[in-house]
Design a protein around this nucleic acid. Sequence first.
DNA 1: TGTTAGCACTCTCGTTCGTTGAGTGCTAAC
DNA 2: GTTAGCACTCAACGAACGAGAGTGCTAACA
Lengths: 338, 338
Amino acid sequence: MREAGVDARKRRILQAIIEDYVLTALPVGSRTISRKYETSLSSATIRNEMSDLEEMGYLAQPHVSAGRVPSHKAYRLYVDGLLQEAVQPDEEARQYFAEQIRPMEDVAAAAAQAIARLTRYTAVVMMPKQLELRVSCLQLVPMPRGAALLVIVTDTGAIRDTVIRVSDRLDSDALFSISRLLTERLAGRTLKEVQEMLGAYARMNGPDARVLEGIASLARQMEKQSAQDTVIIGGSHNILNYPEYSDVEKARAFLSALEEKERLTSLLSRHDAPFMVHIGPESAIPDMQDCAIVTAGYQVGKGHRGAVGVIGPARMPYAKVLSTLGAVSRVLTDLLGE
Amino acid sequence: MREAGVDARKRRILQAIIEDYVLTALPVGSRTISRKYETSLSSATIRNEMSDLEEMGYLAQPHVSAGRVPSHKAYRLYVDGLLQEAVQPDEEARQYFAEQIRPMEDVAAAAAQAIARLTRYTAVVMMPKQLELRVSCLQLVPMPRGAALLVIVTDTGAIRDTVIRVSDRLDSDALFSISRLLTERLAGRTLKEVQEMLGAYARMNGPDARVLEGIASLARQMEKQSAQDTVIIGGSHNILNYPEYSDVEKARAFLSALEEKERLTSLLSRHDAPFMVHIGPESAIPDMQDCAIVTAGYQVGKGHRGAVGVIGPARMPYAKVLSTLGAVSRVLTDLLGE
DNA sequence: TGTTAGCACTCTCGTTCGTTGAGTGCTAAC
DNA sequence: GTTAGCACTCAACGAACGAGAGTGCTAACA
């Protein structure tokens, strides 16, 4: 029993099977391959090869008189081949973003929408955590009826705001003075330090306790949000477009799994290559055992890596998806990288 | 042929059928009613009554040997009965909101989430348009690298911001002076007026044209957004919980219909009663012919009415849903009404 | 006159049982 | 090593059929 590896011809046949299956979602028979892809070989020859490929674990048969379906292992081989080549970024995708300055959250949400539209899959965008976020500016904007909008801007350009109550004796000049004072004292400090310092001030400073409390609370919230990778999801119900999920129960399980973002976050946080592809059980997410998760990394700030990706059935046009993601990740790196 | 109206007994039977059907989603037979609801009557009697009710258009039979299913007309009668009584706001729902001051958009989004969770239906929240929005304050907050955050606050407390580029010679004091100047000139003006005035300034004022342009653009965007009713949707895929949508095609059609918000907006904009219920074709939304849309109005500011609601199969526990919506609308009126 | 028991009738649903057709594996010839 | 031929397997489809749920109708009863 010689049992050689996957020679060039087997590889071609396997690729043909995958490509046909990606299009049709139907088991592929030997005749189909012999007529549409390898016209110089007879169906019997293809059958022999397919039999070998099945033994090696690249193909599976739903039942004995059906054609073959690629296994996760087959997709893995196929995708590894694709990743060797340079991924060509998709030009259409590049042009999807208006060239406007927007805060990071908006950009990420826009990217998720764009990816979902372009690929017709569920899109995920991971924004990396930013530890040691430092306050760059802090300002109170007057609002009607004894309220004020508190805005905190960090050195990375992240913005967060909240409405707080203030004494209605404070006019806009007074609010500005407070803002200036606070910015002087707090600029350059990390969010953690800000919280500590405010604790100290609060004891001395009676009347404006509400303001200080508001800042502390916003700083706390901001730190909490930025201290962990966050995931944005777009086009979640694109999954219904695929026959793999024509069973409502499966679709529901998938959508529920999407809502528990921790699993996705931890998967995307380990993103250390330009592209990553998790096929089937590799993602270790139950209810997504028949899915592939394809992601591309992007750069935000110095050394922080985010990721954009799609989730869909393992039967996926990987080349197309990789090129779309490549384009989007490049745009994101341009917009957020500086 | 006497053919009287719906007497009290028919009404009771109809109600029993509806309530049983709401629970089980299965056609209801005469024996079920006679045993579970009207134990003093035999199934034969019930049968006669059901036959009458069918003739009057309140019941339908999927096929001759199945039980009866309530028609839209039946739900209508039932709901009209409910609306006569005072709707008791659901206490659980009241406690769902943290008592935090938040901008209107956040409150609306939170309400949508809450409603979706509480009812397990798709939730909609309509925020009414606000014409003649007047600027109350306008402020530039310094950001790193020659950018600034422009914040516009209106008299109603709406907040919108955008990042703009500014000359990096402008420090925080300079930005504040500009802010004060702009606020002095623009406070009290409508968004439309602001746009016009800025057009005039822009011609005189060379270097800071970018700032003025940024304001004009934000004002334009803000006006556009606030000049139309906007709808927020929550829990869109709750629909998959219901056997009526166990067919993926139907579910997809429903979800697509949800994305076209114009129809929903125009439906919710005509909200002139505390509660409204659109059953089946009454909503005039194709792909929601078998749905009911239940809404409760809430008050925002002086005279502006918003609405919160749910969308789900016509087979719906209307009393429960109305009471939940009643509670949420009351909370919203408290938070936004002032 | 309203209510009820009895009964024949109808129609869905689930099961069984061939039939069909796609696709395979194996063998023998090229 | 390749290919034609052929027997074989099994899902999918449809027809036939019995079971069961629920009805409408009739006739008896209060």
